[in-house]
Design a protein around this nucleic acid. Sequence first.
DNA 1: GTCTATATATGGATAGAC
DNA 2: GTCTATCCATATATAGAC
Lengths: 218, 218
Amino acid sequence: MEALRKFNANTRGAIRESNEMRLLQAAETVFAARGFSGATTAEIATRAKLPKANLHYYFRTKAELYRAVLANVLELWLDELDRFTSDREPTEAIAEYVAAKLNWSRKRPNASKVFANEVLHGAPFLKAYLSNDLRRRVEDKSEVVRHWIAQGKMRPLDPKHFFFQLWAVTQHYADFDVQVRAVLGRGRLTDQDFATAAENITALILHGCLVPARTRPA
Amino acid sequence: MEALRKFNANTRGAIRESNEMRLLQAAETVFAARGFSGATTAEIATRAKLPKANLHYYFRTKAELYRAVLANVLELWLDELDRFTSDREPTEAIAEYVAAKLNWSRKRPNASKVFANEVLHGAPFLKAYLSNDLRRRVEDKSEVVRHWIAQGKMRPLDPKHFFFQLWAVTQHYADFDVQVRAVLGRGRLTDQDFATAAENITALILHGCLVPARTRPA
DNA sequence: GTCTATATATGGATAGAC
DNA sequence: GTCTATCCATATATAGAC
């Protein structure tokens, strides 16, 4: 009896978790493809293979589901900058960060698109996050960049704009993938395309931001 | 009599032109802020100070109005690469192009946003343009870059990815302006902000892509 | 917890008077 | 050419049976 109750509870809990997960995944795909307004709960439910009413059972409103998707996306963004510390060599820290960001663009393009769409349309759900968490985080990491500049390892650039440029070039391959594919003449971006992108971006950023070794003070 | 007919015709023509213009401007603003699905013809009409039925008189459907807005936007994009020619010094051509693109981000952020939104959601209206016109144009201009590389003036980079990176960093200031403003702590981006952006981007691209003069073959 | 049927709202589009 | 009133489709959300 006790075992059965527990079993049922676990089963129900597992079903809930599984259904919520499927809804979140489906929602990320649909929100990425159509934006918040363009996405319909019907399409999300269909893609998750659940009746529409169930979607509203797990997430009361479309906005609530959207918030949950955004929260998932921010988890990816968060802490990606953690390894950006002043005790490291800028070359390595920057190259690693570029590779990591570009990797997210390849593996989770929809996450990037949902975020891009949100910001593009004025960040109605994320204004507070951008002005508080993100802003503070960039302030922090700007100190690291200033340290490397003071050491004569980086050119005297503006740290915040430096981060804007890193984000722009790496997220471009997710957000504008249709354009990238059209220009490259690809049905979809291959591993080789991403490898080429990584090489080019890394070279651009490192040559563009670092002081060449031979001109540094000894 | 003749004069009156002409006057009326001109007046009617002038009204038409004025109304269409106002609708197009209003539509660009609303499509930029809300996307295609999120935009309502009611809001566009209100912003243009016209009754909603008039909007449908000038542009039969919302999609037709959207197409017209996109066509306007593409005019800005087109021919911006014209001055990218192999007889020029790459330093100048690139610096000029960056400045021009960034200037559009400042003056017509909504045009950039409408385009970004269209591409972000799979370019349902612009697929053909991207695969034909744009692709050919980039092929052409890639030759220019290859020429400069062969001359030893530019590093051996991939020309197409080079253009992706130029677009990414310059359009970022229009498309992600909310994020940029949040991080910089600005209500709106100032001329000074754009000047700083221009300096940083130009330095990044030139140092990142050009071969320093002293190491070039004489 | 699941799902059918439906209430309710919104928005694109048009008919028809002026 | 202009605008009011309205049609109709679509979409969010929920009630209520199972």
